[in-house]
Design a binder for these strands. Structure first.
Lengths: 97, 97
DNA sequence: TCGACAGGCAAGCGCTCACTTGCGTATGGT
DNA sequence: ACCATACGCAAGTGAGCGCTTGCCTGTCGA
């Protein structure tokens, strides 16, 4: 549980999740180069360690294929947040009293 | 934005939010004693600093009254989480294709 | 087969974080 | 007036975090 929040506490890791949501199944170098275009400058090893944290938090899944390692996003751990502290969905399109 | 996640990264702070959701408008000492009953042992100053972090993150509001300082919960910053990465509400009661 | 590519592993360094310690301030009961 | 209460402020300390550096393992193309 705490691992999820610790993972989300870093701006680079949040940018990685944004990037994976934009395009799923990217490799390490793809993520590095696309982070650069976003203005986030991080070395390969740094990004790799960030992905380790995200994987341990259950937010990212790794799939090894040949010499490539593809990463995919998994937002299911975030659902526990909305269930712990009641978050009113701001009376969204569901509201019908 | 990152302040919210950094605030949520600590288990003591999450326990404080739980406690405030259970009973709103508690003072520092009330929160300290009730944390003890939950098994979370923290000094007064430690809890005060945690509340500082939560206040800076916008998750807790302070209201000074005489020599008491009451704390109230505000979950609105958490809504940004659900809006950033689409979190399916597990096909809640809203689903009607 | 050889070299370039994609990635993993681990130690070291600077910085932040959580906590403690000590003192100061203001309120309220008696 | 006096003292206990409720709380704030600030410096110091130990542990964890993010990043770098260096080296090693597989994998694919020419």
């Amino acid at each position: 549980m705490g691992d999820v929040f610790k993972a989300l506490a870093d701006p680079t890791r949040r940018a990685l999740l944004d990037e994976l949501q934009d395009r799923d199944g990217q490799t390490l170098f793809e993520l590095c180069t696309r982070l650069l275009h976003r203005g986030v400058s991080s070395s390969r090893q740094a990004v790799s360690q960030h992905l380790d944290v995200l994987e341990q938090a259950g937010l990212v899944r790794r799939r090894r294929e040949g010499r490539y390692t593809f990463h995919s996003l998994d937002t299911s751990p975030l659902r526990a947040i909305t269930e712990r502290w009641r978050i009113d969905p701001e009376e969204g399109p569901c509201g019908s009293p």
